[in-house]
């Protein structure tokens, strides 16, 4: 567990994986886009608008997954003081916020033609909006202190507090009456989605996941360099 907590080891491993991740991201997204836009049938109920699903649903999964990663990294930073964990959490936040934004906007663009409303305050939509603000709160807090360690502490606690929101988002459609329909893919009795539509969805999800890994590696590299710059400046200032 501590093996990759060492920044130079992490950098070596990350740089080795990076081109593969970037290449696979492009491949998966290209294949996913082809199937999402051309190689898949319209839906029996929703016609062509179902194509919005191929970005809406993967971005929703990523919004939750990235938050989970961010919270896990924050927890291991708070508990075990892994030097890299804070950097990973801080680097993941803007990516997660981006996915959440995509999820909210594409959901709105899907809701208008199908439901008849851009937005409703049902439990699913509201809890995802809360997730977006948790990301923004984390980003604001982590940058709010002159001493980065205090920023990581405060933002890490916020990230952990926000974890309660994850099961609320996931199960909101089962616990309460919502306008949003229940889960189609991640359900106990198997997906309620035709294979011709499941494949493009999974390809896009894979592409989004690798996009996350690629950008995360880049950002962590930037954070490691920034930390080294800070240390060098401090040591130079001391002479």
């Amino acid at each position: 567990m501590h093996r990759f907590a060492n920044p130079s080891r992490f950098l070596r491993a990350a740089n080795a994986v990076l081109p593969w991740c970037a290449g696979l991201t492009v491949l998966l997204l290209a294949a996913g886009l082809y199937f999402a836009l051309l190689g898949s049938p319209p839906d029996y109920q929703q016609g062509e608008t179902v194509r919005i699903m191929y970005i809406h649903v993967p971005s929703a999964w990523m919004a939750l997954f990235v938050y989970g990663c961010m919270a896990a990294a924050s927890a291991s930073a708070l508990i075990w003081r892994h030097p890299l964990a804070d950097l990973i959490a801080k680097s993941a936040a803007p990516i997660g916020a981006g996915f959440t934004l995509i999820c909210l906007l594409t959901g709105s663009l899907w809701g208008k033609p199908m439901w008849g409303a851009w937005w409703v305050w049902d439990a699913r939509l509201t809890s995802v909006l809360v997730l977006f603000f948790l990301y923004l709160g984390y980003i604001a807090l982590v940058n709010a202190f002159d001493d980065p360690v205090r920023g990581y502490r405060a933002a890490g606690i916020l990230a952990l507090v926000g974890v309660v929101n994850l099961p609320i988002i996931k199960f909101s459609v089962d616990w309460w009456n919502t306008l949003h329909q229940p889960a189609s893919v991640m359900r106990l009795d198997g997906p309620a989605i035709h294979p011709a539509m499941l494949w493009p969805l999974l390809l896009m999800a894979g592409g989004f996941m690798l996009f996350f890994v690629t950008v995360l590696i880049l950002r962590v590299r930037g954070e490691i360099a920034a930390a080294k710059v800070r240390n060098l400046q401090l040591s130079l200032a001391r002479g």
């Binding site: 919005i52 971005s59 995509i102 594409t106 663009l109 033609p113 880049l218």
Partner: peptide, 27 residues
């Protein structure tokens, strides 16, 4: 609706990638 959704997704992801590349190179 469909094209707006795809364009927004592409714009957000591209912005993330460009901002990240820019900051890594700078640091």
């Amino acid at each position: 609706y469909v094209w707006a959704a795809y364009l927004i997704a592409a714009a957000v992801l591209a912005a993330l990638l460009i901002a990240s590349l820019h900051s890594v190179r700078g640091q």
